[in-house]
Design a protein around this nucleic acid. Structure first.
Lengths: 251, 251
DNA sequence: CTCAATTTGTTCGTATGTATG
DNA sequence: ACATACATACGAACAAATTGA
């Protein structure tokens, strides 16, 4: 309940390039998610919100209308505006920090492949390995409960792809690779960054433009130091959770 | 690359609440980042972009102006528009995935403590441990090169705090804990989620409202299963990077 | 029951931003 | 550069519903 912010939305508008009512809605949505206002609670009045964000009454109303359309809020004349439900997210996708759980996580996924006219260029950091002669490029949307949760752009070494093209066109590449028992992997490395959804990502994942995302970059090299797989996977930021054991002496 | 022919940006406007020139800019930014156009390349002409995105010439120009302000593009009358640099950030803060590197990362930090009027409530998931009798609550901004990069909200068990109040009021709590040789830690666990900066976070970290953030929740329990430390640390999303070794048979 | 305070709902005029052709 | 249209945003005033003294 500490609205200490004097500056409000107004001063940030230049940087964010999104309508103010969208920004206000975004902040209110967060407060609901974090339990600042619980379900059933009456949220701050229009006047309070006007002052806090330094916007006009109509702008606050537009933001609240947006959240009413999402079913998060409900306004009643003379009474106030109340929280109907949280922007539900108790269903986290636990990102993997080791190979087996990564495979376990994705092997059941059925990707929906997207047609691409021009392959994305592959840039390989020399410290990650040497490039293979040729690559196949795929792009796919990963679904869970019929909802998109990640957008994958994958470069797969052609000599690996040629071993079972049908499988690679139907299933998640990593799962197919994992099942190739004679294929020796020397290193599989993943880096995770945080980004914001661009237009295509936003559309494919059905999230707002500039919504936070987790961008995983996964590189797999064989015993000769050749990069056989390079994947950029963009996850919805609102569904991703990472568990890290720093110390565990309980077991 | 994208849905080149038919729809363009126009039909997506209703779905994505952002000005079209921002959307076009977002798509162009992505192409530069992904190497569709390399540094030094001439990008598509205004006419080509008009047609591809089905927007007016002026709208494409606005998008390009935005990217010129970011220093990604430069237009030359009669020649075309060229890529100056790629969007990425090269100053990453590598988040830790084990205790020693976590301590190593933060022990040199000098936190700037923030006065708080009301202590944040501490809720402990039973599976994480039992609560201590009492806690001290701190909030601080972590600085690097004199720039804020994280906002920490920490609950520290009072009986630990009382062992060296002066240290805990001056240094990073985890570093002080690490140096207490007689203190037995049974488990230190961290979960990482992705969020967006609310007004207070944005102000403290000097980032735009709703800019992406990494939210780390760190729990430390002693040998009796009592939670002695619970910290919520919000990092700037644009500076955080996580390295995960899935498989490494090279060493 | 009435009155006043509170709170959302509505409207007007104006200004600026966005987008087209 | 111009004419046009629509979206966004402001401030202010007023209307309508609700609540409690």
């Amino acid at each position: 309940m500490t609205n200490a912010g004097q500056t409000g939305i107004a001063s940030t508008y230049a940087e964010i390039r999104a309508p103010r009512y969208v920004q206000v809605a975004s902040t209110l949505r967060r407060r609901i998610r974090e339990g600042h206002w619980a379900v059933g609670d009456k949220i701050a009045t229009l006047e309070e919100l006007e002052n806090e964000f330094s916007v006009a009454r109509v702008t606050v109303r537009q933001a609240i209308e947006l959240l009413q359309e999402e079913g998060l809020l409900r306004s009643h004349q003379g009474k106030g505006t109340f929280v109907m439900r949280t922007p539900g997210n108790d269903r986290w996708l636990h990102l993997a920090t080791d190979w087996d759980s990564l495979i376990n996580l994705i092997s059941a996924n059925v990707p929906r492949f997207i047609d691409v006219d021009t392959a994305q260029e592959l840039q390989i950091d020399p410290k990650d390995g040497r490039p293979a002669d040729a690559y196949e490029f795929f792009r796919s949307v990963q679904l869970k409960r019929n909802e998109p949760y990640a957008l994958a752009s994958v470069h797969l070494a052609k000599h690996i792809y040629d071993r079972d093209p049908a499988a690679f066109r139907k299933r998640v590449a990593l799962a197919v690779i994992d099942e190739m028992d004679d294929l020796e992997i020397s290193r599989a490395h993943q880096t995770l960054r945080i980004g914001a959804a661009d237009v295509e990502t936003a559309l494919q994942l059905k999230i707002p433009l500039n919504a936070p995302t987790a961008e995983a970059h996964c590189i797999i090299t064989d015993v000769d130091g050749v990069v056989i797989y390079s994947g950029d996977i963009i996850y919805r930021g609102d569904q991703v959770k990472l568990d890290i054991e720093l110390i565990n002496r309980t077991s």
